[in-house]
Computed example of a mutant assay.
Amino acid sequence: MSTNKIILGIVTAAVAGAVIGLLLAPEDSKKTIKKLKKKTNELAGDLIAALEKSKAKAAEAADQLKKEGEAYAEEYAGAAREQVGNI
């Protein structure tokens, strides 16, 4: 299971729990809506931060793979040139 799916599942469960808790609380509806908006914004910010972190890690991994691929390509191209020269 990917990290993004885990994060999304945790955030979804937290939002659902917050919504249920606020809707069942014996408070004024305006207060409940304010709390719900505040919590939703906080969770959305956390989710965006986690996704940005995952995106940065994926970009780093892609750069590393590209460098490794270029190194292998250069190595095998050199080996191929040597084989052609030996023929």
Rank of each mutant, 00 (worst) to 15 (best):
M1K: 13
M1F: 13
S2F: 00
S2L: 04
S2Y: 12
S2W: 12
T3K: 05
T3G: 12
T3I: 13
K5L: 13
I6P: 08
L8G: 03
L8I: 02
G9W: 04
V11N: 03
V11E: 00
V11L: 06
T12A: 14
A13M: 11
A13F: 04
A14F: 00
A14Y: 10
V15S: 03
V15E: 07
A16F: 01
G17W: 08
A18T: 08
A18I: 04
A18F: 01
A18D: 09
A18Y: 01
A18C: 14
V19D: 08
I20E: 02
I20M: 15
I20Q: 08
G21I: 09
L22A: 04
L22N: 00
L23D: 11
L23C: 14
L24V: 06
L24A: 01
A25L: 00
A25K: 02
P26A: 09
P26I: 11
D28M: 07
S29T: 03
S29N: 13
S29M: 05
K30H: 06
K30W: 10
K30P: 02
K30L: 08
K31C: 03
T32C: 08
I33K: 00
K35N: 11
K35L: 07
L36C: 01
K37V: 14
K37D: 10
K37A: 13
K38E: 06
K38A: 06
K38P: 02
K39Y: 00
N41W: 05
N41H: 12
L43F: 07
A44R: 10
A44T: 11
A44P: 00
L47W: 03
L47D: 02
I48E: 13
I48W: 03
I48D: 07
A49G: 09
A50L: 03
L51T: 00
L51H: 05
E52L: 11
K53H: 09
K53Q: 12
K53A: 07
S54H: 05
S54P: 01
K57D: 08
K57P: 06
A58L: 03
A59W: 04
A59M: 13
A59H: 11
E60R: 05
A61K: 09
A61L: 05
A62R: 04
D63E: 08
Q64Y: 04
L65W: 02
K66T: 15
K66R: 14
K67M: 05
K67E: 04
E68G: 00
E68N: 13
G69R: 09
G69D: 10
G69Q: 11
G69M: 06
E70P: 02
E70N: 09
E70T: 14
A71R: 11
A71M: 11
Y72L: 15
Y72G: 10
E74N: 05
Y76M: 04
A79L: 13
A79P: 08
A80C: 06
R81Y: 10
R81F: 11
E82M: 15
E82Y: 04
E82V: 15
Q83I: 15
Q83M: 15
Q83A: 15
V84T: 12
G85E: 01
G85R: 08
G85K: 03
N86S: 15
I87R: 07
I87E: 10
